[in-house]
Amino acid sequence: MNKWYGHPVFVVAALINVFVMGLAIVWSGDQAALWRLLVEDGIVEWMQFLCFAVTSGLLAFAAVEHWQRVRRIDLVLLALAGMSLVVALAALEEISWFQRILHIATPDYFVQNNRQGETNLHNLAIGKSGSIHKTILVKLIVLVGLTHNIVLPLLARTRPAIRTFVEKFGLYLPPLWPSVLYVALVILSNVAVDHPRKGELSETFGAMHYLTSVFAAYFLGVNYGRPPIFENLTDRRRVATLFGMLLVFLLLTGWLLSAGAGAGSYLAIHPDGGKG
């Protein structure tokens, strides 16, 4: 699709991310509302889980489709299956493996070594005040995110061999304008929002961006040189419309889950809203 705005699915994702950013700015003067947005089991954390869960499912589906086409284990299959597993783990880590939802007591090891006293790995303590998330993962995400979303797409504009090389390993490069918007929103959220958990906004923007770019590349062939899952133009148009509706539904579902799955009770137990 050669329209100036690219593919409509990116427009829907961008509007949702801008909406969440707008909420954070509007609610900056209302700490109770801002906590509701950013707290554990709040709106943005449920959005992250839902986006990661759907992304993992899409990647697993793409892996199965690739296997059915080639009937052999190759780099593309391993990449798709591996990314599906990693994203599934990220989804489960976001909600501490359903611990709070199922009211499961935290094991002694995590009580002593987890910064939030929860059953997850990314908040395990490192040193006196650090954690795996803050000390390692954040830096890694920034490096990989800028390379994948800005550096490589820019270089690929004049060196198409870069895109071909990336796709050889089962990966893809997202279109540039959604990536620039994603990075801009991350910067804006860190500058415009004064809150100890403002980093949750960056994670939500990234989860929505990657959900959309994974779908666009592997299922629709947007900015992707290999044959997409939906090769027929009419099928791509129909499934893209359904996907746009799904994105809006995920926002609604995240909002409903935050109201009914414990954000309020979490704040009552942890007035500081958690540390990671």
Rank of each mutant, 00 (worst) to 15 (best):
L173A: 05
W177R: 04
L176N: 08
G170I: 07
V191D: 03
V191P: 00
L188D: 00
L181Q: 07
E167G: 06
F165Q: 06
P178E: 06
L188I: 10
F165S: 04
R163W: 03
V166T: 05
L188Y: 05
V191T: 12
P160I: 03
V180L: 15
P196V: 12
L188H: 00
L171R: 04
P196A: 11
I162P: 01
V193R: 03
I187F: 15
V180W: 07
Y172S: 11
L176E: 10
V191L: 15
R163K: 15
P174E: 09
V183M: 14
V180Y: 08
L173V: 05
V166C: 10
L188N: 00
T164Q: 15
L176C: 09
T164K: 14
A184Q: 05
T164L: 11
V186P: 00
V166D: 05
V193L: 08
V193D: 01
P178W: 04
D194S: 13
S179A: 15
T164M: 08
G170A: 09
R157H: 07
Y172I: 01
V193K: 02
L171F: 14
P196D: 06
R159N: 04
L176A: 09
P178N: 12
L171D: 06
R163G: 12
L171S: 12
V183G: 03
R163N: 11
W177Y: 13
P160T: 04
L176R: 08
A192F: 10
H195Y: 11
P175G: 06
I162W: 03
D194F: 03
E167R: 11
S189G: 15
W177C: 02
P160L: 02
G170Q: 08
L185S: 05
F169I: 02
Y182I: 01
V166K: 07
V186S: 05
P178Y: 10
V180I: 15
V180H: 03
E167S: 09
A192Y: 00
R163T: 01
K168H: 15
T164E: 15
L188M: 12
D194A: 13
D194M: 02
E167D: 06
P178G: 13
P178H: 07
P175E: 04
R163H: 02
L181H: 07
Y182W: 14
I187P: 02
L181K: 05
I187E: 02
A184Y: 11
P178C: 13
T158C: 02
L181R: 06
L181P: 09
S179Y: 11
T164A: 15
F165A: 09
A192E: 05
R157A: 11
P174G: 07
L176P: 12
L181G: 06
F165M: 06
R163D: 02
V183F: 14
H195R: 04
F169S: 13
E167M: 10
L185I: 10
V183S: 13
L173I: 07
R163Y: 03
S179V: 10
P174W: 08
K168Q: 14
L185R: 01
K168G: 08
V180C: 11
V183Q: 14
I187Y: 12
A161M: 01
T158V: 03
Y172N: 03
P196S: 11
P175M: 05
S179T: 10
N190V: 00
E167Y: 11
P178R: 07
L185Q: 12
P174A: 14
A161N: 01
L171E: 01
S189K: 00
A161Q: 08
V186Y: 02
R159L: 11
P178V: 12
Y182R: 07
V166I: 15
R159F: 13
T158R: 14
